[in-house]
Design a binder for these strands. Sequence first.
DNA 1: CATATTCTGGACCAATCGGTCCATAACGAA
DNA 2: TTCGTTATGGACCGATTGGTCCAGAATATG
Lengths: 189, 189
Amino acid sequence: MRPREFEPEDALDRGMRVLWARGYEATSLEDLLEAMDLSKSSFYETFGSKHDFMVAALTRYIDVVLGQLAKDMREGSARDAIFRTFDCMIPTRGMPANGCFMQNCTIELAQHDPEARAKVREGLKRLEEGYYRAVLRGQENGEIGREQDARELARFLVSSLNGIVVLSRAGFDRKNLLGIAETTLGVLR
Amino acid sequence: MRPREFEPEDALDRGMRVLWARGYEATSLEDLLEAMDLSKSSFYETFGSKHDFMVAALTRYIDVVLGQLAKDMREGSARDAIFRTFDCMIPTRGMPANGCFMQNCTIELAQHDPEARAKVREGLKRLEEGYYRAVLRGQENGEIGREQDARELARFLVSSLNGIVVLSRAGFDRKNLLGIAETTLGVLR
DNA sequence: CATATTCTGGACCAATCGGTCCATAACGAA
DNA sequence: TTCGTTATGGACCGATTGGTCCAGAATATG
């Protein structure tokens, strides 16, 4: 046996970042190979196809990024926890505003690509669950009123996060985006 | 002089719908020509290039769709007017959820394409102005409290609309999206 | 009807696309 | 060191990409 000369996960991460920044269709295989420092045969041997790779990258993004987001939301003040999810998706000034890879895939692929669509819906569901639990926790400890349905609020937060991320990709200032996030939190009363 | 055999605006509209549904990169010139019922030479003679056409389509979308949206918002109850903008961007069950062409361009193009970026920012600004005026009207006639800054609320509404549209493209039910819209309106108190 | 002008269809182009394949290099096991 | 196995680089593929160009069709004008 001859061992691989690359780490599949590292390569996946590097390739994901390219798809994230440029989009699926606008990224050529050559772009991917260059970023991943891989030969064509290694790429196809390991990942199957460009499309398969995109699905793998999306899966990993949902696991890693959204997993971390949901994990960070599990403790402390519900309002703070929720605000943090917004804060960490808002790019700091000067950083590239790549938005959210899952959102990019939603817009570019979800409507015509069943696999991408399924992944995206799974990711959105996980995000909603994270918010749902945070809202419930907030309602239990009195931070958030019980008049509004926790499920509705969770869906509202998923939508709000996506809205902010869209505007970040359009180049809105961090300051304005944080303002929107605060206005959003105003619903939780 | 020989007269044109097609109506440029009609062709622009038909082509725009294809870009809207499939995205810029995923749409080939052949796709466009077929949808527009045009020959290649007529296309290039009239629109210059695929990229120029996309900019023209985006310009027209902003003028027509967002113009209508802003116009419909100018009268009557501010809350109702704002809600209507959400309602009309939420697809009815069974209809294709193409979302918002400007949003699609934001995600797919704004970061790397300066022209698309400029158009998108102009469109978002116009949308914000529409909401701003509606919020001011609401604050003047007592529908909306004066505690919150109208500009902040306008930006929040732009963001919220975009969030809902993203979820619509992900396949969320109209019922849930309307629920999100109502929760959003709850901020206007 | 003749002519000048403009529009159209499609041949044609180089470049690039995603993907396959194989000779060879590089390693683990013996 | 030899052998068997696997990973790698790159040649190669047909299809498609966006774009150019021109011969000829169609029409307004005189």
